[in-house]
Simulated scan of single mutants.
Amino acid sequence: MIDLYFWPTPNGWKISIMLEETGLPYTLKPVDIGAGDQFKPDFLAISPNARMPAIVDHDTPDGPTPVFESGAILLHLAVKSGELMPTTARGRKECLEWLFWQVGNLGPMAGQLSHFVNYAKQVEDTDHGYAHRRYAGEYNRCLGVLERRLADRPFILGDAYSIADIICFPWVLIAKPLGQSLEEFPKVADWRARIKDRPAVRRGVDVGKDFRRQGPHTEAAKKVLFGQTAKSLPA
Rank of each mutant, 00 (worst) to 15 (best):
G63S: 08
A35M: 04
G34A: 09
T65P: 05
S81L: 12
D57L: 00
I46K: 09
Q38A: 07
A78T: 11
D62F: 10
G82H: 04
S47P: 11
P53T: 00
S47D: 03
G23R: 08
K40S: 08
S70W: 01
G82C: 12
I55V: 11
H58K: 12
L84P: 14
A35Q: 14
F43I: 04
L77S: 01
P25D: 06
M18L: 15
G23L: 12
T27V: 07
G82A: 10
R90N: 14
A35I: 05
L24K: 02
F39M: 13
P25F: 09
N49W: 02
M85W: 00
E83V: 00
A72F: 08
T27M: 00
T22D: 09
P64M: 11
G71A: 05
P53S: 06
T27Y: 00
G82L: 10
D32F: 15
R51H: 03
L77Y: 01
V56G: 07
T60H: 10
A45Q: 14
A45G: 15
V31H: 10
I55D: 01
G71S: 09
G71Q: 07
I46S: 05
V31D: 06
E20Y: 07
L75T: 10
S47M: 04
G82Q: 08
A35L: 13
E21I: 02
M18K: 13
E69G: 10
